[in-house]
Each structure stands twice: as structure tokens, then as C-alpha cells.
Amino acid sequence: MFNKKNLYRMGLILLTVIVLAILNSVLGKYQVRILNLAGIYIVLGLSLNLINGFTGLFSLGHAGFMAIGAYTSALLTMSAVQKQANFFVQPIVPWLANIELGFLPAMMIGGIVSAIIGALLAAPILRLKDDYLAIATLGFGEIIRVIFTNTQSLTNGALGLKGLTRFTNVPYSWGIALLTIIFMFSLRRSSYGKAFMAIREDEIAAEAMGIDLFKHKLLAFTIGSFFAGVGGALLAHLMGTIDPLMFRFLMTFNILLIVVLGGIGSISGTVISAIIVTVSMEALRFLDSAINLGFVVIPSVPGMRMVLFSMLLMLVILFYQHGLMGRDEITLDTLGGFFGKFKKKEA
């Protein structure tokens, strides 16, 4: 338990926590919001990476599962008064009207509901492969969104839910992000993780080795949906407002961008690229507004930012398919090697 490696790992986590605590107290409100978003996107990126990268199931329905987590948790944390204020078109269903839970249990229930629905939906379609699976999961994402738009008395329809208490803060978002990272690393080292990767490499060979394809695929999909739901819950309570349009395919696209950029199948790659993508999404906001170059003013072109990001995805996939990390990880050894080199150079 307390061998050298574990001590180093704990030290690393402690270091991260200290850095985050410092950032949290130093940064302004806007920057802390971005920090929170980065934590949430780490959770979301890792959950999609588990399905797409480890297990090789190409799922495009992530936004739908996020929506389930977001709505479930939001409906559970809202007070009766808040609900009444939101549901003015049609009153909320009675069994939900008076429930009010804390943020953490609501988030967990959001994740669990998302996982259950994910498992139920996935069970029939997991025998599809590659692009068929992709289009079917994309369909599920859309169906969930359409249902949420139309169930007025349950989700308030297209109006969405407004005025949620903003529970998400750095301890929550990054605490869960760190837990997710630790969970993913230990999952991958476990026999389940190895089975997932065997399925990714060659389904038929994996089956011949005695791996139950259906069970493992279902498990990967369910865990992925759980974390997607948790991420959705965190996002809802960061934004304070949710509506079905938030969970369009665009949302899945952003997460896919993170996974591809970081390297499909790499945990540390996903973490790094989640931070890079979140920060640059905000930092590049100026592209959408007018730019004054001093001698000439470029008029504002809304959408320029997304052009850049879709181009980035194309460039990565066309010329640099490995992404930042490929399937490699930043481990203690590579870190040690890096610093070791550093020391030698100094000497």
C-alpha cells in the first residue's frame, strides 16, 4: 500500500489539489468558471473515451445522456418554489413537485438514472457495429432531446429550467474529475479494462479468448453513461440554466473533439486536451466579435470560433491521427524520466 509508487501518486494528487486551491483563491469569478468547465469536460471526455477509446464502440449519443443527468439532478435540487416559478405553462407532475435533495445525492441519482437508461437503450443496439452503432446512438441522443422538448409537465419542454442554484464549484468539479481520472486508471488496469481493450483490438479474437462481448460492451456503455450523467449534472449546476437545445449534437461534437485531440484511448491525453479545448474555447471568443487591428477593423463574424475548431478536428484526424498522446500515458516513469533528464542536463 505505502510503496514508493503509491506515495508518489498521492503526492501528485496532493500537488494538484494544492495548485487547484491556489488557483481557486487567486483567480477571478470568470476564470474560476472556466476552471470548473475544464473539470467538467475532463469527466465528460473521459466517459466518452471509455466508450470510444477503450472499448472501440463509436457512440455519438453522449449529449443525450448528459441531458438525462442534467435534468434529473436539476429537478431534484430545485426547491418547490423554484419549480413553481419554472413550470408556469403546465404544472409539474405531482410526485416531483416537493422533492428537494442536496447536490451530491442529486448528482449521483442523475448519474444512476443516466446509466440505467443507457444500459436499457444499449442492450438492443450493441450488436450493431461501427457506423451503424454510431448512427443508432446518434439517434438515441436525438430521441432523448425530442422527448425532453415535448414532455412539458416533466421537463418544462423547450422553455428549459432556469434559476438553478449554482452548486458547482471547484471542489465539486475537480474533486469528481480527479475521482474519475483515478477510476479510469484503475479500471484500465483491471481485468475488465483489459477485456475492453481486447474487444477494441479484435472482437472475434476477444470472444475466442472467452470474453463475453455483450456483457463487457454493456458495462462500458453503462459506466460511460453514468459519468456522462454526472458531467451533465455538474454542467447544469454551473450554468444555472438548461434547455433541450443545449444538448444538441454540437455538445457531443465538442467532447469528441477533446477525445480525438488528446488521443483516442489515452487518459492523460483526454485530460490535457479537455483543459486546452475549454480554455481556448473561451480565449478565442474574441474571434466571434469585431477585431480592431489598429489600421483596419475586421467586422464581427459569429461562428468563426467553431470554424476554427472543426478545422482543428479535421487537421488532427487527417495529419496527426495520434492526437496529443496517441495511446500513451503520462506515468510516473515518464515523468521521472523527464525530470531525470533535466537533472542530468543541469549537472
Binding site: 470510444n52 472501440g56 463509436f58 455519438l60 461501427d130 457506423d131 454510431a134 461534437f253 469528441l256 480525438v260 483516442i264 461562428g303 467553431m306 470554424v307 475548431f309 472543426s310 478545422m311 478536428l313 479535421m314 484526424i317 487527417l318 491521427q321
Partner: peptide, 16 residues
Amino acid sequence: ISVMISAIGASFLIEN
């Protein structure tokens, strides 16, 4: 999967 991601990227690029 790479080709499909490229297709999604192309679609988003054209839209944007």
C-alpha cells in the same frame, strides 16, 4: 472510425 470522425468534422466545418 478515423474516416467517420473526418466526415463529422467535414460536416461541421461546412456548416460553420
